[in-house]
Design a binder for these strands. Sequence first.
DNA 1: CTCTTATCGTGAAATTATTCACAGCCTAAA
DNA 2: TTTAGGCTGTGAATAATTTCACGATAAGAG
Lengths: 219, 219
Amino acid sequence: MNIPERTIERISQYRRLLCDLKKHGRKNVYSHDLAERIGSTATQVRRDLMLLGFSGNSKTGYEISGLSQKISELLDNPGGEKVALFGVGNLGRALMPFFAAHHQDLRIVASFDIDPDKFGRVINGCRCYSSDEMGVIIPRESIKVAILAVPAGSAQSVTDELVNAGIRGILNFVPVSLQVPAGVVVENMDMGMALEKVAFMARQIEKDLNCKKRGRDKT
Amino acid sequence: MNIPERTIERISQYRRLLCDLKKHGRKNVYSHDLAERIGSTATQVRRDLMLLGFSGNSKTGYEISGLSQKISELLDNPGGEKVALFGVGNLGRALMPFFAAHHQDLRIVASFDIDPDKFGRVINGCRCYSSDEMGVIIPRESIKVAILAVPAGSAQSVTDELVNAGIRGILNFVPVSLQVPAGVVVENMDMGMALEKVAFMARQIEKDLNCKKRGRDKT
DNA sequence: CTCTTATCGTGAAATTATTCACAGCCTAAA
DNA sequence: TTTAGGCTGTGAATAATTTCACGATAAGAG
């Protein structure tokens, strides 16, 4: 049972949506309803849920709480997942309350920085350690997942230490392509790339519309 | 000449890499070199550059400054692209210096919030306005691209106003699926999804390795 | 009871993205 | 001059992903 990466992404989105719906008192949901809300198609939703191994029925669609639970069984670590944050700068400090608010399953339990002023301080409910201590603390707490938000210049060297310390998954906010050995996963949150892309695509669409319009005018 | 979205993303990454290489005094680069650095394949790089319409040669590979320029011609708006930031909270304030440092072509020229304490203040070199003013300022400055970093509850309503005001591309940091009319592009920076995914994949890989190991042991 | 309607589940087709395979080119060495 | 080696450009093959198309199911209307 191997679920493609794209499907994993959508499943995470489905769960968020399902939580919202649950809060609004909804008990059931149709594939086309989910699809519309995440900008996909009903077929796609049904196929994803098929891969997940969850069945609905033709009259009421999918049962929300059962589906949420099934998704949690797939995505969540039993007992929660500890996360370490590297780089307690502007971005790092902004991320802490964000994840605290939206994800109780993913807990940032330690942060690391090279600024001695921060050592020992508790920032956003999370103790900040010296980067030198990661080799001790990460194995001790058996932390497997890290968020990287350090300056570009030190991203690779921190990554190397981090992998040594036992980290297996990195959410990378630094606009640098990290080199990691096999067995370690990197997910890039490339904000610069995303902004360039969205600007490009907005221009592109505008251009296409103009072309079509002009095309119509001529005809 | 229609370039697929995936290729656009990689092209943006190539450019960043090329700038680094240029700073290090490199003049030329081979496809396999670029590929290694972004974790792709030489063939993929060559095909991307082919779509871009840039040629190298068999002895020296690709000429870095020429290629950078070609990429800029594709991705950049002549005269730069003005960007507006919505939501000057922790995240919003962290994003301003980030983009200022990494992207001179994409300039955040205005920010908006609903907190009256912030109106009129200049934060990170950027004036903060009341959200009520977006209908005036966005058309006046002909801003087409927006970064959305508001609380989840107001994301959709701000989006609606924003589209009304003439925004055509939105980089969305809010964990909510935005509904927009045709002709408007949304790019989701779904940090929660990304963290869930990286945690899942890290566990997955570990599991796979164990399976393989056990498989070997038995054989 | 039968018909209509709305939905799910899924094999198969279509589409999109990536990789293979190799011709062609250039340079340096023999 | 010839040969070998390393690289680019790209048609064709392959793989991944999405969409189509349709049978199955259930429930309400007539």
